[in-house]
C-alpha cells in the first residue's frame, strides 16, 4: 500500500509541476541567432549586424560535432533563439532530429538544404557527405541562403559586410585554385584518418583517401592499413595528414609501415576538419582555417 501511495503521489506532483507553463522571457534587446558549429558561427557573424544581433554556437572550440552533447545552457539558448542554423546532412547526429522537431515552433534552418542534391557527394543510399564547407563555391551559396533567410525573418544584416564577405570568399576560392594548380597534379594526394575532405578533393582536383569512413563506431582492419600503405608507396606520397579532432595513432602505424618498406612519409598534424581553431587566431575564422589547411597541404606535399 505504502509503495502505491508514494508512487501515485510523486506522479501527481511531478505531472502537476510539469504542466506549468514556461514564462521565461528573453529580456535582451538584441536578436539571438543560435548555430551549431563554429564554422557556421563565423560565417553568420560576417553577415549580420552585430550591433543588434548576438550569435551563439552550441559546439565550442575543438568539439567534434559527432561527439557533441547538449547541456542545459544549450537548451536555454535554443529556447531563446530567434532563429537557429545548423549544417544538416546528419553532421549534427541526433541533435539534427531534435532541431528538425523544433522547427515547428521556431525558425530552424538546415543550411545544406539549399544545395542541389546533385552537387553533393553521395556516400551511401540517401546518405550524403556533410562536410560541405570545404568547397568554397558551395559554402558561398550557403552564405547567400543564410543571408536571405535572415532578411526574411527581419533579423538585421549588414549589407556592407555581406558584400565584402562574398568578395573574400571569391578571392579565397581563387587563391586556393591558384595554389593547387601551381603544383603537379600527380602530387595532389590527400590522405587523412577520417573521411572529411571529399569536397575539398572534388572542388580543387585533389585525390582524397582516408582510413575511416564517416561512422565513428566502425573500426579498420590490418588489410585496410596495408592497402593504404601500398597506395602511398605506389603513388610516392610524401605526407599524410592528421586532423585536429581525431587521434593520429592509426596514421602513425601507417608511417611506421611505410618506413620499413623504405618509403619516408611525413605525418603532418593539425588539419582542421569539423571545427575551427582557437577564437581570435587566424585559424579561428572560416577563411583563415581554409588557408591554413591549404598551406599545410601544399607545403608538405611539395
Amino acid at each position: 500500500m505504502i509503495i502505491r501511495y508514494i508512487i501515485i503521489n510523486l506522479f501527481i506532483i511531478l505531472l502537476l509541476i510539469s504542466c506549468q507553463s514556461n514564462n521565461e522571457t528573453n529580456d535582451s534587446s538584441k536578436y539571438t541567432v543560435v548555430v551549431t558549429t563554429n564554422i557556421i558561427e563565423n560565417t553568420i557573424l560576417n553577415i549580420v549586424d552585430t550591433n543588434y544581433v548576438n550569435v551563439f554556437p552550441l559546439m565550442k572550440e575543438g568539439v567534434d560535432p559527432h561527439l557533441y552533447k547538449a547541456t542545459r545552457k544549450d537548451l536555454e539558448l535554443l529556447n531563446q533563439a530567434d532563429i537557429i542554423f545548423y549544417n544538416g546532412l546528419h553532421l549534427e547526429g541526433k541533435l539534427a532530429e531534435v532541431l528538425d522537431k523544433l522547427s515547428r515552433q521556431k525558425k530552424v534552418v538546415a543550411l545544406a538544404d539549399v544545395l542541389d542534391k546533385e552537387k553533393l557527394i553521395q556516400v551511401g543510399e540517401g546518405i550524403y557527405d556533410p562536410h560541405i564547407w570545404f568547397d568554397v563555391v558551395l559554402w558561398k551559396e550557403v552564405t547567400q541562403y543564410a543571408r536571405n533567410t535572415l532578411n526574411e525573418n527581419n533579423i538585421p544584416t549588414s549589407k556592407k559586410n555581406y558584400i565584402s564577405y562574398l568578395d573574400q570568399l571569391d578571392s579565397t576560392n581563387n587563391w586556393i585554385n591558384k595554389r593547387i594548380t601551381n603544383f603537379p597534379s600527380k602530387k595532389r594526394i590527400l590522405i587523412t584518418s577520417h573521411d572529411a575532405f571529399s569536397y575539398l578533393g572534388r572542388a580543387y582536383g585533389i585525390e582524397v583517401n582516408a582510413l575511416l569512413g564517416i561512422s565513428t563506431v566502425a573500426e579498420y582492419g590490418i588489410k585496410d592499413i596495408n592497402n593504404l600503405v601500398d597506395y602511398i608507396i605506389e603513388n610516392k606520397v610524401r605526407s599524410i595528414f592528421a586532423e585536429t579532432s581525431v587521434s593520429s595513432k592509426s596514421l602513425e602505424a601507417i608511417v611506421a609501415a611505410c618506413q620499413t618498406r623504405g618509403h619516408e612519409v611525413q605525418l603532418v598534424s593539425g588539419l582542421y576538419s569539423d571545427a575551427l581553431g582557437k577564437k581570435d587566431t587566424k585559424e579561428g575564422t572560416y577563411i583563415g582555417m581554409l588557408e591554413s589547411n591549404i598551406n599545410k597541404i601544399v607545403n608538405s606535399l611539395n
Binding site: 559527432h66 561527439l67 541526433k94 561512422s215 566502425a218
Partner: peptide, 8 residues
Amino acid sequence: QEIDLDQE
C-alpha cells in the same frame, strides 16, 4: 557505408 551510427 550503409550505416551512419555514432558511438554516441
